[in-house]
Simulated assay, not measured.
Amino acid sequence: MAREKRIWLEKYGAMLGWLTLLMVLFSIVTVVSRNVFDVVWIPVQELALYCHAAALMLGMVYAWRHDKHVRVDVFYQGFSDNKKRWVNVIGLLFLALPMMVFIFLASLPYVTDAWARMEQSGETGGLPLVWLFKTLLLAMPLTLIGAFVVDVFKSLKAIKNNSGAS
């Protein structure tokens, strides 16, 4: 089961890589068309922006699962494994989870309004799926909340198992 989850996570990471490649290609097309041919393609420009935002917002949970997120290691690196687990639990419960809940709740009216209006690009010739794109503002905190909750339980289980072994 754990192997299947890792394979799924790596496929998710590969998809994010392809999304990033698309962003770069759309950006190149935008720059070349604008500077060489003096043509502005708003949909391609918006696609580059959407790919960038999607890779960033959906990539956060991937970075978290691979422990590649930003961490202040000044004191943490010298802590024992159990102390690190306690720091993680406290940090997740009192900092990370409340922040993700806040982002979700603060974004909810913005996203529901976009869905209610089926919001489209304000640019002439822009893409019609702005409402769908804004949903990333809810997907990011939800995926991170799920990852954080899993990590809290894993850390607490490891703390319990470690204290029982002593």
Rank of each mutant, 00 (worst) to 15 (best):
V31M: 12
F26Q: 00
K84F: 06
M118I: 03
L132Y: 07
S33L: 05
V149P: 00
K83G: 00
V39E: 09
E46G: 11
R117K: 14
Y62L: 05
S155M: 02
V149L: 12
Q45C: 10
W115L: 14
K84G: 05
L25N: 00
P43E: 03
M100K: 01
N35D: 11
F26M: 10
N88F: 03
V111G: 13
Q45I: 01
R71L: 07
Y62Q: 04
E119G: 06
M99F: 15
L95K: 00
L58N: 10
W86C: 13
M60T: 12
F153Y: 11
N88V: 04
F102M: 11
F153N: 09
L132F: 07
A165N: 11
W18L: 15
I28T: 11
N161S: 15
S166V: 03
A96Q: 07
L142W: 00
K134V: 01
E123N: 11
A114L: 01
P141K: 02
D151F: 02
I103S: 13
L92H: 00
G13V: 04
G146A: 15
V87N: 07
P128T: 03
W115N: 12
P128Y: 02
V89P: 00
A96D: 01
K68P: 00
D67N: 14
L21F: 15
T112F: 14
V152W: 05
E4M: 11
A54Q: 02
S80E: 10
V31L: 10
K5Q: 12
N35R: 11
W115F: 14
K83R: 09
A53V: 08
M15G: 12
G13I: 03
F79P: 00
V61S: 07
I90A: 15
